[in-house]
């Protein structure tokens, strides 16, 4: 009885694993097909679609801008969020829960609404240029990652180590930079990567805040898909998957993926 159940479950497990990965494999396969329209099975083998990416200015500039925005927003979120997390975990703040809720509020409001709200009040309302608003939007996306992942790390970091440093004669600021930061640098890098991925991939907020003069990669692909159905999108997708793989490899080296899992558990990805 037990044996049979186990056997069925194993079969199911492999089936789901296959279903999970098959769509992505399909994307990879179609990126090499030589026909302009994607059909099954693919015919021929070519790399021309990868070359075609470079002839799409939207993809090239989109990649650059998305990259720059993601780096800036992630960096900002870490620089601004880290002091807040430190205060919340170390300084016995009153109503810490309340602050925590405010800092996590970007996950409570649907991203599409955040995009619309930012567009309406900052771009239309007070006529801010798109770029700073876009970075603001992505900063908001990143803050919760900093708050959650860093809170988890600092709660694990023994506070008496800091006390030992103070007693050794290092001021609180010096202790923060010489003792705390060196010990949480792996987590900070993992957080940076998570923020980067999330910002780089974001669509709902980006959608409202890009424009003819400001092209972002995910929305550029989205636009391209409205008008074309050729393997160029497959090729871009493969590039994006390679990027994801690279980021995951980096994080695994930082041993930070456990934190990532914890965080994603608490937040549905959109």
């Amino acid at each position: 009885m037990r044996q049979k159940k186990h056997w069925l479950l194993t079969l199911y497990g492999y089936l789901m694993l296959l279903l999970l990965l098959l769509p992505l494999v399909l994307v990879v396969v179609t990126s090499f097909g030589s026909q302009a329209a994607i059909t099954f099975p693919i015919k021929g083998f070519t790399l021309k679609w990868y070359a075609n990416i470079l002839s799409q200015p939207d993809f090239v500039t989109g990649f650059k801008t998305s990259f720059a925005v993601a780096v800036t927003a992630s960096f900002l979120a870490i620089v601004i969020g880290t002091p807040a997390v430190y205060a919340l975990t170390r300084r016995g703040i009153h109503h810490a829960n309340w602050f925590q809720t405010v800092f996590l509020s970007p996950t409570l409001i649907p991203e599409i609404v955040i995009g619309f709200a930012l567009f309406q009040s900052l771009v239309i309302g007070i006529k801010l240029p798109l770029m700073p608003v876009l970075i603001t939007g992505h900063f908001l996306l990143s803050v919760p990652y900093v708050i959650r992942m860093l809170t988890a790390r600092l709660l694990l970091f023994d506070q008496t180590i800091e006390e030992a440093s103070w007693l050794s004669g290092a001021s609180k600021i010096k202790t923060f930079f010489r003792v705390v930061i060196p010990n949480i640098s792996g987590t900070l890098l993992a957080i940076f990567i998570m923020c980067f991925i999330n910002s780089f991939n974001n669509i709902p907020i980006t959608l409202f805040l890009n424009g003819p003069s400001l092209t972002m990669l995910p929305t550029a692909i989205l636009n391209y898909l409205q008008n074309n159905y050729d393997p160029t999108v497959s090729a871009v997708s493969v590039i994006l998957m390679l990027l994801t793989g690279l980021m995951m490899w980096l994080m695994e080296r930082m041993n930070g993926l456990t934190h990532v899992n914890e965080h994603l558990n608490q937040k549905g990805q959109k």
Partner: peptide, 27 residues
């Protein structure tokens, strides 16, 4: 605290994890 010139030995040692024994003592 950092100007009192006192030292403390903690129950859980509280050594600096990122520093060697020498660097811990030299800190």
């Amino acid at each position: 605290v950092f100007k009192r010139n006192m030292s403390m030995v903690f129950q859980n040692y509280a050594l600096f994890p990122h520093l060697s024994v020498f660097e811990n003592v030299a800190f």
